[in-house]
């Protein structure tokens, strides 16, 4: 029964991992760039939701929308001013520009917010639903549902709207997309904004059960890499499955290993997938 409980917990948190990681995979899919600063946007999303809760009294689950909008805007700006310039640069420049971004964002938040740990209090924080012998924690369930909704919204956007199709066209062949009258630069801005916005959203919805501080992103770095590599870098559907799988692996592994070694288990999965099938185990590799 402990095993089943761990699987349920894993699925709940895995849904959030999926949303967080979709951002990383989306940016890679459209631009071929791994954003090493991705986890920092999660931190920013958490901070936005925290301050919305503290000063405006907005529940983090609603505040997640504010996080998404603000970080989307920030992402568009970052794309226009920084990432755009290294699109055709060698990988070393692309890698270190986002690493530089990581350092800048982390230390800006350290300067602005201090190194304190902050958390919110909500009415449903400690409640759980009972299903026979199993429990589902309400904040976990809420975060999972929000993730599900946002994933659905993203799917509708990319598949049913002109902008979404134009973005996917840009990912497949920027030149051809350009010839069809698509502004490829604009599409990349939207993609980067969406990418970091989704991650910020994921950060906000876990706020009811997660503490925020400027280096909170570190805990998600290996995790996000594992999710996207498992699902195939660039594949959104892969990231969803990868997120759920990683959530379950992580949760179940705590039954056998000390909790601190979760990352070690994830790394073994990550490195094995990279070695065996770098294009990912799940989803269509592009």
């Amino acid at each position: 029964m402990a095993f089943l409980q761990a699987v349920i917990d894993g699925l709940m948190i895995g849904g959030v991992y999926a949303v967080i990681s979709i951002g990383l995979t989306l940016v890679f899919g459209v631009m071929g760039i791994v954003n090493f600063a991705q986890a920092e946007f999660l931190t920013l999303g958490m901070f936005v939701a925290f301050f919305a809760w503290k000063y405006l009294g907005i529940d983090p689950l609603v505040g997640s929308l504010i996080s998404f909008v603000l970080i989307f805007g920030l992402g568009v700006l970052v794309q226009m001013t920084i990432i755009q310039r290294v699109l055709n640069a060698p990988p070393v420049a692309q890698i270190f520009v986002t690493v530089g971004l990581l350092i800048v964002i982390e230390n800006l938040s350290l300067i602005a917010f201090g190194s304190d740990f902050r958390s919110v209090t909500t009415s449903y924080q400690t409640s759980a639903l009972r299903l026979g012998p199993l429990f589902i924690s309400v904040p976990y369930l809420a975060a999972f549902c929000m993730s599900l909704l946002s994933g659905l919204a993203l799917w509708l956007f990319t598949n049913k709207t002109w902008y979404g199709r134009a973005m996917r066209a840009t990912a497949q062949d920027p030149m051809a997309a350009h010839l069809m009258g698509i502004n490829a630069d604009r599409m990349r801005q939207i993609a980067f904004g969406l990418g970091v916005g989704m991650t910020a959203f994921g950060g906000a919805v876990i706020l009811p059960y997660f503490t925020v501080h400027p280096t909170v992103g570190h805990q998600f770095v290996v995790l996000m890499f594992t999710v996207v590599v498992l699902g195939g870098l660039g594949s959104v559907a892969g990231a969803v499955v990868g997120g759920l799988v990683v959530g379950v692996i992580q949760s179940v592994s705590t039954l056998f290993f000390p909790i601190q070694l979760q990352n070690l288990v994830l790394f073994l999965v990550f490195i094995t997938v990279l070695a065996v099938r770098p294009t990912g185990l799940i989803g269509a590799a592009r």
Binding site: I82, R85, V86, A89, A93, F96, V97, V99, G100, L101, L102, I103, V104, E106, N107, L108, L110, I111, P214
Partner: peptide, 16 residues
């Protein structure tokens, strides 16, 4: 964090 911030900005600047 200020010196680290400068470090990060320098990195971005040299790459660009």
């Amino acid at each position: 964090g200020l010196s680290q911030l400068v470090f990060g900005l320098m990195l971005i600047a040299i790459i660009l």
